[in-house]
């Protein structure tokens, strides 16, 4: 017991140092900046000023009174909303894809899994730019539509739909892989048992497949939701920056907005949201394991 404790303390020291330097120190700095005074030309001056956090909810009126202003709350809500929608679409699409991979012939499986991970070999920016070409004016999508005899359409690019398309595209491999692993573990005899006991496909999906692949689905949901609410590229490039999201908001505050402390405060809120999601998930997972045994 003692030996184990001392190993945790000293044996893992390199890991602690690495974690400290790459994770804890930077977060501490951002937290510090969020409390600092705004510098006149960007940058900041150290202080203990909660003004940046107040700014998220209130504006200063003409006579210096605080007025509730929901404009940043709207951005936060929108970010969460798009995060959830992205996650839901990824789930709906990943299930059949993962199912097909899991039921493919043994020789094909590694190849299909490789295909799913293929996009990660290309830089994210390049991939998002590719969607610009696909969805843009006279882009591939429009040409294909016209080729199939479709009439004139408004460009899809720079709409929320285009942004969602990009987000789903970017993060869906993170959903497919854990769901595939979960389906792979599913005993086919259980599906047969469900059919045998008068369950049609829908009953089997709802009462057997979904509950038993839920660990994979929830892991995938976390993996998709967390980066989706912090995303910058898709809203900026594909959504045309028309609708501010938390990621783009932070980016503008450190860039054009020249308000580092406010950007840092938003970043802290984003991180807090991620932490809450992870904690909720950990609690749910623990409860689920408890119920199993």
């Amino acid at each position: 017991m003692r030996a184990l404790t001392s190993f945790r303390l000293w044996g893992l020291a390199p890991a602690w140092v690495l974690m400290g330097l790459t994770l804890i120190v930077p977060v501490a700095i951002v937290a510090g900046v969020s409390l600092a005074d705004r510098g006149p030309y960007g940058g900041f001056d150290w202080a203990l000023n909660f003004g940046s956090y107040r700014e998220i909810l209130f504006t200063l009126g003409w006579t210096d009174e605080l007025e509730f202003a929901p404009k940043y709350l709207v951005i936060i809500a929108r970010t969460l909303g798009y995060g959830l929608v992205t996650t839901a679409i990824c789930m709906a699409l990943a299930l059949p894809v993962a199912y097909v991979i899991a039921n493919a012939r043994a020789g094909w499986k590694p190849f299909l899994v490789y295909l799913v991970t293929l996009p990660f070999w290309v830089s994210m920016i390049v991939r998002v730019y590719a969607w610009l070409i696909i969805l843009g004016n006279e882009g591939l999508a429009e040409k294909a539509w016209k080729f199939l005899g479709g009439g004139d359409v408004d460009t899809f690019l720079f709409t929320n739909g285009a942004m969602l398309t990009g987000m789903v595209y970017s993060y869906i491999p993170l959903m497919v892989l854990p769901v595939y692993a979960a389906i792979e573990k599913l005993d086919p005899a259980l599906l047969e048992a469900s059919h045998d006991l008068y369950g049609n496909r829908w009953v089997t999906l709802r009462r057997v497949i979904l509950p038993l692949t839920w660990p994979g689905l929830s892991a995938g949901a976390i993996l998709v939701f967390v980066p989706a609410i912090g995303t910058v590229l898709e809203p900026m490039l594909l959504g045309g920056g028309r609708q501010m999201m938390m990621g783009t908001l932070i980016q503008t505050q450190f860039g054009g907005g020249r308000n580092w402390p406010f950007g840092a405060a938003i970043a802290m809120v984003l991180m807090a949201m991620v932490v809450v999601v992870l904690l909720l998930n950990a609690r749910r997972a623990a409860a689920a394991t408890e119920a199993r045994t």
């Binding site: 005993d187 005899a189 259980l190 047969e192 048992a193 469900s194 059919h195 045998d196 006991l197 008068y198 369950g199 049609n200 057997v208 038993l212 199993r292």
Partner: peptide
Amino acid sequence: PHRRRVNTVFQSYALFP
């Protein structure tokens, strides 16, 4: 299978865990 009034006891039992 789900329209046949036949039930199976599977070799591995296949109980829903």
